[in-house]
């Protein structure tokens, strides 16, 4: 099995592929952390990393197809292999992704690029007036725990004797001072509910400057990179399972299988409809990545990994040859 795994691994990561991956890594680093034009954001680097991993999945599909053309699939079926021998394909794929991720980590942590100086990012939040003295805030995404609302209140119509006021959600009350941005820390429940309603004393006649309401989200530090990249690996583990299942069980062309697997995985990002476990945040990337990064809950994660394991198991089980 080791010989089989190493053979597939060598086929998967041939020299041109290694060269391309190295160049891509160098390019990704420069595009992300260039002194003048780079966004200086881990999110940019993560987005290039996700693309490289997606390309490796496509390569995996290509290798599967090559192996089918070379008769390996026939050999698998003929020899009624155990799942352990056939799983070498997926092991090699996971291992190649793992190597890329480790290399990415080493490059970034070793070069230690300057990140965006501000450790807090401000994001838009939907606000609406619930009543004369209360406001409701909503957001669509799973945002990280520890996020805050950043609000600006207008005291222009308050009575003269109001020097400070208060904002509450019927459980907690916080003081708000005129001329200062007001922060409301969101609890775990608020984050889960994706909405919160705040109110002020009606007699204080505060008004919220709604265009200035924002969510404050802490940017992950560079030390979070290993975890962010590990999340990507966990996400792509199931993608490999999907690809293998489509290829071996549904007997679809390997190249199409890899595209299909990526398409199914992309359904985790489909708006409004929840077709898949909510694991899109595992591959949070891009320049606003902090809004959803590290927000995947354990149940969704383990469901996703469970699906991946089941798919690999079913795709590696040799089909019965004596079917009716």
């Amino acid at each position: 099995m080791l010989k089989l795994s190493s053979a597939i691994f060598r086929q998967l990561l041939s020299w041109p592929i290694i060269l391309c991956a190295t160049l891509w890594l160098a390019l990704a680093y420069n595009l992300s952390f260039d002194e003048h034009l780079g966004a200086a954001s881990l999110g940019a680097f993560l987005s290039y990393s996700v693309l490289a991993l997606s390309a490796l999945i496509v390569r995996f599909g290509y290798v599967l197809q090559q192996r089918r053309q070379q008769g390996w699939l026939r050999q698998d079926l003929l020899r009624r292999t155990t799942a352990l021998a056939a799983v070498s394909e997926s092991l090699a794929a996971v291992f190649s992704l793992f190597i890329f991720i480790v290399c990415s980590q080493i490059v970034v942590l070793w070069l230690n690029p300057p990140l965006n100086e501000q450790h807090e990012a401000h994001h838009l939040v939907m606000s609406r007036v619930a009543s004369d003295s209360s406001w409701t805030f909503t957001w669509d995404d799973n945002i990280p725990e520890g996020s805050k609302l950043c609000l600006t209140f207008d005291f222009e119509n308050s009575p003269d004797n109001v020097k400070t006021s208060s904002i509450s959600n019927s459980i907690v009350e916080e003081t708000v001072t005129p001329g200062n941005v007001f922060y409301w820390p969101l609890t775990v429940d608020d984050v889960r509910n994706k909405t919160i309603t705040l109110e002020s004393p009606l007699e204080h006649n505060l008004s919220l400057i709604r265009p200035l309401a924002r969510l404050v989200i802490t940017r992950p530090p560079i030390s979070a990179l290993p975890r962010l990249l590990l999340n990507q690996l966990l996400f792509f583990f199931t993608v490999i399972g999907l690809c293998l299942f489509i290829f071996r069980r549904l007997k679809v062309n390997g190249n199409l299988s890899s595209l299909g697997a990526l398409a199914i995985a992309s359904l985790t990002n489909l708006r409004d409809v929840q077709l898949m476990p909510n694991v899109g945040a595992l591959v949070s990337s891009g320049l606003r990545y902090e809004r959803t990064a590290l927000t995947t809950n354990d149940i969704a994660l383990f469901t996703w990994l469970g699906i991946g394991l089941a798919l690999i198991y079913f795709s590696c089980k040799a089909p019965r040859a004596d079917k009716k």
Binding site: L31, S32, A39, G43, A44, L46, S47, Y48, V50, L51, L53, S54, F235, V239, I246, L250, V252, L256, S257, L259, G260, L262, A263, I264, A265, S266, L267, N269, L270, R271, D272, V283, S285, G286, L287, Y289
Partner: peptide, 30 residues
């Protein structure tokens, strides 16, 4: 599978979905 891939392409075009890896395109554009 081909229909699923086509559905994803249409969803991406209509803005209802972001495919895996699409953010890299945005980062590069940026």
């Amino acid at each position: 599978v081909a229909a699923l891939v086509a559905f994803c392409i249409v969803s991406v075009a209509s803005g209802r979905m972001r495919v895996v890896g699409q953010n890299a395109v945005d980062s590069f554009r940026c």
